[in-house]
Design a binder for these strands. Sequence first.
DNA 1: TCTCTTCCGGAAATCGTTTTCACCATGTTG
DNA 2: CAACATGGTGAAAACGATTTCCGGAAGAGA
Lengths: 338, 338
Amino acid sequence: MATIKDVAKQAGVTIGTVSRVLNNKKWVSEDCRKKVLVAIKDLHYKPQAHARRLRQKHSRICGVIAPHHTAIFRSPFFTDIMQGLEEIAAEHQYRLLIHPLNETARAQVSYRTLLGDGSVDGMFVLNAWSTDASIRELTEANVPFVLVNGKITAQEELPYVGFDNRGGVKKAIAHLVDLGHERIGIINGRMTTTNALERFQAFQEMLADHQLEFHSDWVADGDFEEEGGYKACLKILSAVRRPSAILCANDLMAIGAMRALKDKGLSVPEDMSIVGFDNMEEAAYHEPALTTVAFSAYEMGKLAAHKMFQMIAEEPLVEKATTLQAELIERQSTKKIN
Amino acid sequence: MATIKDVAKQAGVTIGTVSRVLNNKKWVSEDCRKKVLVAIKDLHYKPQAHARRLRQKHSRICGVIAPHHTAIFRSPFFTDIMQGLEEIAAEHQYRLLIHPLNETARAQVSYRTLLGDGSVDGMFVLNAWSTDASIRELTEANVPFVLVNGKITAQEELPYVGFDNRGGVKKAIAHLVDLGHERIGIINGRMTTTNALERFQAFQEMLADHQLEFHSDWVADGDFEEEGGYKACLKILSAVRRPSAILCANDLMAIGAMRALKDKGLSVPEDMSIVGFDNMEEAAYHEPALTTVAFSAYEMGKLAAHKMFQMIAEEPLVEKATTLQAELIERQSTKKIN
DNA sequence: TCTCTTCCGGAAATCGTTTTCACCATGTTG
DNA sequence: CAACATGGTGAAAACGATTTCCGGAAGAGA
């Protein structure tokens, strides 16, 4: 490996001069610059990243971590976020360092440890749990970070990008009310997540706003999984009085719920209207096509990255927490009630 | 930020001693070790990664690059590979550095530049094109690398992990022959990729083996996309004599092909048998369920990572190129011919 | 008591850069 | 002509760790 010394010797100058050429600094004669450039090319010289970073105190690398998930690459949701992060990172010539977490590491992830070693200029924290107090370590680490699609319930406002769950639920409920529904149930996601929490809270508020009945028999947890949605739906169907519509906190559970309905001999939307969340690809192909509240995880990733690079550039953040607007996509799984 | 000097001062020892404690070296008294440990904890000290790496010449980081693809996180195929990489990396306490490539960067990616700066201990190259001669730079860079799911057509054998495409095609054709098919068409993927190339070559050979007719009217390119599969199928259907079965180089094209057949009023498998590749999730749900050749991208990722860590440990590779076996999954899209 | 290990701490070199500072020519101004 | 900018260069000091080498103290054996 050629070092800067070799280049200097070859070009007949000192390493200081080589460094100036490398970093496009002023005060290098055209003559000298050329000599150095030739030497660099001849020796296939490439500055050592670590040496450079040691001196410069930054790495052009951002970390990505999802503290509560094992198979980070398995979920289209995560990967959509990362695609957004990646594209904006590329624009800034930054790279993404993925922090794998095995079973033991996840149990006791220390953000101070992860950030304190200076290997990243910033950190994206994906899907943090609302109960994860250790997030607060991030603020002590003195490294910019952005919480994405999951934040802790805390007093202080941390840099955050997420979905406008209230707005989404509002649109969904308004749609169902428009169609004449008065008995509306909900299949929830895991309540440690921000999205599940906010969707459920908004659900309750919207029912109150429309002066609709809230019935605990019409509430079930589905854990954001297809199978969970199936079971949750069965539970709701076992109620003495049934709702006429069910709001599902994501599409996967909605598909599970529709499977349960089919198994029980009920048809969608004739016997039950279903609304999902996320607008995943299968939602459009499903029979019947699923009415759903659409959010873009990809856009969320881009937004998060933009926020990050503002912080890295030490520009003031116009808003600490940003939410993405929801769009209701009406398909065949909801129907006017008679 | 506390440095090793601060810790040394606090503990009343020299930095050499602190370093020995940090790296669990011998010749440190229990007494002294404790003092240092306390100081480290008190000061929230974390060794600077870059300084350490500068000295130690390795980073516990592996790079991941997909030189010919923009949206690396968009394909379940890539992300499955990465999930495999990630899990094995976690076992070795390695992290993954994703190299984003924007339009301009992709055009002139230089592996020498990417690897020469010493920021990664190894590099995974995903889906390299068979025509990409610049891959050869990797060998000069003196950094371990593994080609995954895509290799160049070259004399020398490079470290590679991929699918046993021959075996897969062999099983698919044998299955169709068993069912009595004699006229078999193929919808190809992009021919710059190893998988498409190998699948097509194997297809031709297997036809010859079974002494079946090879007809250029029954061959079409579908670019690995759903829409491409649709168009390619239409092209094949326009032949004067039609095949009775079509092999599709991936499931996405198979689904497109089946859509084209449906549009033309033909039914699968009654009028046409279809075999796909990859066993993507939708293949099982599709109506009719798709018979397909199953490969596991996830396993491929794990295998690639294992190979990588063998190389990093400087153990001799038992085999340079490894291929994953295929499994034929028979579903409803193929049928015995009368 | 002397010497020879054995065990451990401290000083200094090193990794490969960037950055600061000093210096020397030149040319410019008072 | 003195004083003073100014552009170009080299020498050396960081950056924060690891690693090597040296030497002192303690303990053992003669």
